[in-house]
Design a protein around this nucleic acid. Structure first.
Lengths: 234, 234
DNA sequence: TTAAGTATCGAACGAACGTTCGGTAACCTT
DNA sequence: AAGGTTACCGAACGTTCGTTCGATACTTAA
């Protein structure tokens, strides 16, 4: 946990000292303070509201109501609405990557590692639907410094997946476009937030297995499917 | 074309007569009037802006600027901002379905028909990226009557795809969840708007072939991939 | 040429927005 | 008990929002 509310350090802004107070020196861990715990709850409420109404459509007054705190009081915990989205996205993304790294230690087998990637993604996704929807749906919302930082984390995640797939390709001596495979896979597993219904659909583990099978058969099998008949027009 | 600006006829609203003027009797076609042509251009500008800033983030003043028309003047062509989004989504969705129906007449082969579905989707998607992103991204934005109408069209599209896949499954005697397959496929092909770059990526036809191969191999091949080793924890 | 309809506009409305300010209450340390 | 820090609040500020209104130009048909 530990929201690591270390100074956001964005682009130009000289950070007037009013809100950067709670910064911890980087090494120091300073176990969840009262402040951090309250902030975490606020982020949870905020994720719920952003998920429901979208970032632009949600108002700070909505959050104030949901959190049972005055509008002004909110600003004790973060700089701005934009900062709020940034904190949610960063924490969510960092957590999912952290867990993935941990789980990847369990296996050296290329195919198994791809399965671990998918399972980790889906498990976290379905256990944290709201935050994950905010991460996924408000992908291009943040601009400038905060946006660049989130985009960097996203590239890191992309790169991990790409490497896993290229390891697999090398090991099995296959031929496919890594980029297309990664993005096709991401599509399948990120799209879930638009339709998954816990009362109808499989749970995370079973879903991960199904999707892994679908994807891996598509990638592993030789291109023996019918070729399209050449069309005369265009 | 022909935006079929036939009376929107929403839920309760008695339609006070002020804006429903341009309604055409349903049968009548009334080739693109001056009004319809201007409206089509406005919808195009609106799609561009909604695409760039999101529905909530975009303002009518943005549209006014982009269209080179006064703020008040816009309301000559539609009832409200919500109506604008509705018109864009409806026209886009109806067009893609219409084209699909046309193309499906070309083949009776189950696999080929799935390929046609994917190709039609991607071709239209990449040729109308902005409108398709608005359709995809602002999926849950519309409420009440307009929202219900769009959701109905979406279900229709889903059903077409599901039927195609179940025909394929029957023909080949396979076993897979139609729902999972459809939604996995939709994920792959809708996610594209988040990453496709015409300077880097394949064009629609080639992309459709790649994605068709990936998906169809995943669906058609027997479940011969490695089973996950049972885990001890959880 | 005129009259009716269509297209467009400037200006304004009330509501909602994100954020700030000065102050008060609660808490912690000594 | 005192004094400093942290937590929180009511009220307001300036801005922007979607939408409306009354008036003016343009187009068309008689």
């Amino acid at each position: 946990m530990a929201l690591q509310n270390i100074e956001t350090r964005l682009s130009g802004e000289p950070l007037d000292g009013r809100k950067g107070r709670h910064a911890l020196s980087v090494g120091e861990v300073a176990a969840d303070s009262r402040f951090d715990r309250r902030l975490a709850k606020l982020l949870h409420h905020a994720a719920h509201i952003f998920c429901e109404k979208g970032y632009e459509g949600a108002s700070m007054r909505d959050l104030s109501r949901a959190a049972g705190m005055s509008l002004a009081g909110l600003y004790h915990y973060f700089e701005s609405k934009e900062d709020l989205l940034y904190l949610i996205q960063k924490h969510t993304f960092r957590t999912i990557i952290e867990r993935l790294q941990e789980r990847l230690k369990e296996s050296r087998d290329a195919e198994e590692r791809v399965r671990i990637f998918i399972e980790n993604h889906l498990e976290y996704f379905l256990a944290n639907k709201e935050a994950m929807k905010v991460l996924t749906h408000e992908d291009e919302t943040l601009k400038n410094g905060r946006g660049a930082e989130i985009r960097a984390i996203k590239r890191e995640y992309y790169k991990i997946c790409l490497d896993l797939l290229e390891d697999l390709r090398r090991e099995k001596g296959l031929q496919f476009s890594g980029r297309l495979a990664v993005l096709g896979l991401f599509g399948m597993i990120n799209w879930i937030y638009t339709w998954h219904n816990p009362r109808v659909d499989l749970d995370a583990g079973a879903m991960a297995e199904e999707m892994s099978n679908l994807f891996l058969r598509g990638v592993l099998n030789p291109g023996k499917t019918k070729r399209k008949i050449a069309k005369t027009n265009a």
